[in-house]
């Protein structure tokens, strides 16, 4: 590679990093109509945003650091769980037992424990049973604060990546079919799933949703044909608890009407 190209790439990375660092890890709820201004003059996107506005009112942005799917999913799913005690308890049980399962699958216990502990701490801090009279608003604030504290927020992302990786290994034969190129499932897990900042694809979403048993609907705002936004439910046929919007390269959280 020419040194000149390298210089340009370096600058590009610096700009990306600046944009990234100036975005909060998870933003406040913002009116979805803000997308209109963002894509003003873009006919394809404008029509699709109009369509999206019929179904959704708010968006919550996540930092575009390659972890956005995992961070958005975790935030949105916990937001659902704090209003649904039965589902919360079930999830907490699943999370508690997930460590032993991952150890059985071959993850090193010593380093895994560090992430699991923090993951459980986050879940316990938003226990709907411990809030008393102030109720869900207090939990909501707690959740928002936790997810904007890098230490907690990133550890939640790491742990979800490990759960995803574990699922891929557990059902390697099935997931192998989704992998493009010459990757084995083992290589894919170590290269594309476990490391931070690696972007998520369908396969990550399917594996995580299946492992956790949570339905996710993704609305695709892209240059595909038509003036409506296409939605996809993961796993197929499930009832969505988490709503995300995908724009090429990035996931944010959506709030249905």
């Amino acid at each position: 590679m020419e040194p000149k190209d390298e210089e340009i790439m370096k600058q590009q990375r610096e700009i990306e990093k600046e944009v990234c660092d100036s975005t909060p890890l998870v933003s406040e709820k913002i009116s979805l109509s803000c997308l209109r201004t963002e894509y003003m003059g873009d006919d394809v996107f404008s029509a699709k945003i109009q369509d999206l506005l019929k179904k959704y009112k708010f968006i919550r942005r996540t930092r575009p650091d390659g972890n956005c799917f995992f961070r958005a999913f975790a935030y949105s799913y916990l937001e659902y769980l704090i209003t649904n005690y039965t589902a919360y308890q079930e999830f907490r049980k699943l999370a508690e037992s997930s460590k032993d399962k991952l150890v059985e699958l071959g993850f090193p216990r010593f380093t895994l424990e560090d992430f699991h502990e923090t993951f459980m701490e986050v879940i316990k801090r938003v226990d709907p049973d411990c809030t008393g009279a102030e109720g869900s608003e207090k939990l909501q604030n707690e959740l928002h604060q936790i997810f904007n504290e890098q230490g907690y927020s990133d550890y939640v992302v790491v742990y979800l990546r490990l759960i995803t990786s574990g699922k891929l290994q557990e059902e390697a034969e099935f997931y192998q079919n989704f992998i493009e190129g010459s990757f084995t499932i083992e290589e894919f897990r170590h290269q594309e799933v476990e490391p931070m900042y690696k972007e998520s694809d369908h396969i990550h979403i399917i594996a995580l949703c299946t492992a956790i048993g949570a339905g996710v609907r993704v609305e695709y705002l892209d240059r595909g044909e038509g003036s409506t936004v296409k939605a996809h439910d993961f796993p197929e046929g499930s009832e969505p608890k988490v709503y995300l919007i995908y724009r090429p390269g990035h996931y944010d959280i959506l709030y249905p009407n």
């Binding site: 993850f107 090193p108 010593f110 380093t111 895994l112 992430f115 790491v158 490990l162 010459s182 990757f183 084995t184 290589e187 170590h190 290269q191 476990e194 490391p195 931070m196």
Partner: peptide
């Protein structure tokens, strides 16, 4: 190589 062991948070 693709198969080479990489850094991830569970390494040490």
């Amino acid at each position: 190589e693709l198969s080479a062991e990489r850094w991830s948070p569970v390494q040490s």
